[in-house]
């Protein structure tokens, strides 16, 4: 990956997230964490490990299974001077608590004419690939990014994971922090090795709203986020074997969306493939393609393509789910068809 200081400390995304929270909690007494099993258990996906031991149950608060209650409580606390980091264990569970998120968290700043702020982080896991079926495997990036008033980020590696978490906690706006289970570094989820990277011990931020060119190329632009970036990087390797040079853009942030980086890349390559594990229609992939075509369609040498999850609930059986998920071969095939 580009743009990373060299050091010897490789962290998983789970540990990088926990370290960012730990440092912010040490720095700022208004930061606290709450959610289900985030205390002594350390989070189902390991991202709060160690916090309970250091900060105790007042600031690392196990909640009842009451997402509407505790997420709207975070909104209230955030508007009253605290900086809550609240976990929705799986993004799929947004269904039971979305009002707290999109009608309160996302709108109160606007409703106050900018006089009130809601400085909170909603962290939530996304993604499938391990047969957890239709209520535990979704991404829903587009669903969250569609609704105005909340920033939305999703790291593809531990370096960004730490810097984004720090930036999200310090941000005076609500930030939805979506972490992909397959990148967490939890072996039981069949983790992607490329997500575990060098991560500085000292605190730093990664800018929210800035995409990264993580591989330079000239023939085609592959755009993705989170797991999509790793699929794109593997596809780029395969394309390179045939002498095709793919550029890979990691969106990092969906809101704000760094349209310029995408546009500049496609202006150079003339071809665009968007990789998105979210459902095909009405989502990130359509938005990226619209961004490029609206700006200057003449830059495109071929119709843009997208490799996405088909518009069906996520199936349980492994072979069916794998059939639906994006993968490097599908990206290569999409390029061949251009």
């Amino acid at each position: 990956m580009l743009d990373q200081p060299t050091n010897e400390r490789r962290l998983t995304i789970a540990r990088a997230m926990a370290e960012a929270m730990q440092q912010e909690m040490q720095r700022d007494p208004t930061v606290f964490v709450m959610g289900e099993d985030i205390g002594g258990f350390g989070g189902i996906f390991g991202n709060t490990r160690g916090l309970f031991e250091e900060f105790g149950k007042e600031r690392v608060r196990d909640t009842p299974i009451s997402e509407t209650g505790f997420i709207s409580a975070a909104v209230g606390a955030a508007m009253d001077g605290m900086r809550p980091v609240v976990e929705l264990m799986f993004v799929d569970f947004f269904g039971v608590c979305f009002d707290a998120i999109y009608n309160q968290m996302a709108k109160n700043t606007y409703f106050s004419g900018g006089n009130a702020s809601v400085p909170m982080v909603l962290m939530t896991s996304t993604g499938g690939g391990y047969s957890d079926a239709g209520q535990h495997s979704q991404c829903l990036y587009g669903t969250f990014a569609h609704l105005p008033g909340m920033k939305v980020v999703s790291p593809s590696n531990a370096y960004d994971a730490k810097g984004l978490m720090t930036a999200a906690i310090r941000d005076d706006n609500p930030v939805v922090y979506m972490f992909h289970k397959g990148l967490q570094g939890m072996g039981w989820l069949g983790t992607e090795a490329g997500a575990t990277v060098n991560t500085p011990e000292e605190e730093y931020t990664v800018e929210i709203g800035k995409a990264k060119v993580v591989r330079k190329g000239t023939d085609v632009t592959l755009v993705g986020l989170a797991m999509g970036v790793h699929n794109a990087l593997k596809a780029a390797d395969k394309l390179a074997e045939d002498g095709i040079s793919a550029e890979v853009v990691d969106l990092v942030s969906l809101v704000p969306l760094d349209r310029e980086t995408v546009i500049n890349s496609v202006a150079k390559t003339g071809r665009l493939i968007v990789v998105d594990e979210d459902y095909h229609s009405y989502g990130v992939s359509g938005e990226i393609i619209a961004t490029v075509t609206e700006h200057d369609i003449s830059k495109l040498k071929a119709s843009p393509a997208r490799v996405t999850f088909p518009d069906v609930p996520i199936p349980y059986a492994r072979h069916m789910e794998q059939f639906c998920l994006p993968n490097p071969d599908k990206i290569v095939a999409a390029y061949r068809k251009m």
Binding site: G134, Q135, Y316
Partner: peptide, 22 residues
């Protein structure tokens, strides 16, 4: 094979379940 262990639905005996708590 679409539903799996948390999503067993059997209309023959009016049984269903959900992985979403509550």
């Amino acid at each position: 094979g679409r539903g799996g262990h948390m999503h067993l639905i059997d209309p023959a005996v009016n049984f269903s379940c959900s992985g979403i708590i509550g």
